[in-house]
């Protein structure tokens, strides 16, 4: 297996309250240094709640946001400058809100043509053929091409978004909550389509979601983010079934499941990002927290086999 994507200590800090001159009033560490490896053909699921930095991480990976520090390698090539066009041919992005990711004043054909023309220099018949091919791949009828985005339902618009991302012929797709704006009956359609496309085009996926069950259903490996840091990674079948980090367990127990009593009533909330605690960010909510946790930030380390966790007192399976 070859490495499709590798990040080394990738981090992002946002300045809050910028001034015309002088330093900003405060800084928020949206993403703490993150090192991830994704194998070719793999689906890496990234889960976390709002404010955990998963979208910022994704935007850095496609060059929409310049990283504050660290490096990104795609298929062995370093891509650190934030130039989305350079990233575009290797890695593409599917947005959460399918309708707002399509320019309301352009037809679907105009939207589809852009990446083909600008990234691959296609013209004329080749362009038309390629668009037809892509539309067939995502199960959309060719007559949709002359319509405008507002004429489509969320599920259809998301297929168009996927087709546009595929038009760049990327090696990797970042799927940023691709189904969370969709109803469940449509969500499954899109998820299954994504699985088919992956096999057909030999793609690598980064699948970002807040829905644990969805992530588990589509991923090979899962990384759990909390407060800007990766707190646990491991194979999809083990992460929620036998979590090593207390936060992962809290997540897994909070997900509503038919027939299980309500749990997690008193589990606290996220710390203030402007005033982060020293040590482990989860310590304030953690039943196992010790003085060590409140003092020292735990590093991501191997717990057993392919399960990694950033915890001083990891759980036993």
């Amino acid at each position: 297996m070859t490495l499709a994507l590798k990040t080394t200590d990738l981090a992002k800090t946002f300045d809050i309250g910028k001034r015309l001159i002088g330093p900003p009033r405060a800084q928020v560490h949206a993403v703490h240094p993150v090192s991830l490896d994704v194998q070719t053909g793999e689906t890496l699921g990234i889960v976390g709640e709002s404010g955990c930095g998963k979208s910022t991480l994704a935007r850095m990976l496609v060059g929409l946001e310049p990283p504050t520090s660290g490096s990104i390698e795609i298929e062995g090539r370093a891509l650190d400058r934030a130039d989305p066009a350079a990233f575009g041919r290797l890695i593409q992005y599917v947005f959460q809100d399918p309708v707002s990711s399509l320019n309301p004043r352009k037809t679907i054909r105009q939207i589809m043509e852009v990446p083909l023309r600008l990234l691959h220099g296609m013209r004329g018949q080749a362009l038309d053929d390629r668009i037809a091919e892509l539309f067939e791949a995502v199960n959309l009828r060719p007559e949709f091409l002359t319509r405008y985005p507002h004429e489509f339902s969320g599920g259809q618009a998301q297929r168009i978004g996927i087709a546009r991302a595929l038009a760049a012929s990327p090696r990797i797709l970042i799927l940023d909550e691709p189904v969370s704006a969709l109803d469940v009956s449509v969500q499954a359609q899109v998820l299954n389509l994504l699985a088919d496309l992956k096999a057909e085009f030999n793609l690598t996926y980064l699948f970002i979601s807040h829905d644990l069950a969805v992530v588990e259903a589509v991923s090979d490996r899962i990384a759990v983010l909390y407060f800007g840091s990766v707190v646990e990674t491991g194979p999809a079948e083990k992460v929620f079934a036998a979590p090593r980090h207390p936060y992962t367990r809290l997540l897994a127990e909070s997900a509503p499941v038919v027939g299980r009593p309500l749990g997690g009533a008193q589990s606290g909330e996220l710390p203030d990002p402007l005033n982060p605690p020293p040590g482990c960010a989860f310590a304030g909510r953690c039943p196992r927290a010790s003085d060590l946790c409140r003092r020292e930030v735990p590093a991501l380390r191997k717990i057993e086999g392919d399960q990694f966790a950033a915890c001083h007192h990891p759980l036993e399976p």
Partner: peptide, 22 residues
Amino acid sequence: LIACVPELGGGRRILAAIPGLP
């Protein structure tokens, strides 16, 4: 609809879908 909802602990799988739109 119930079949469409992935449940935690089900592992990696193809999900049931309902074709068409509401």
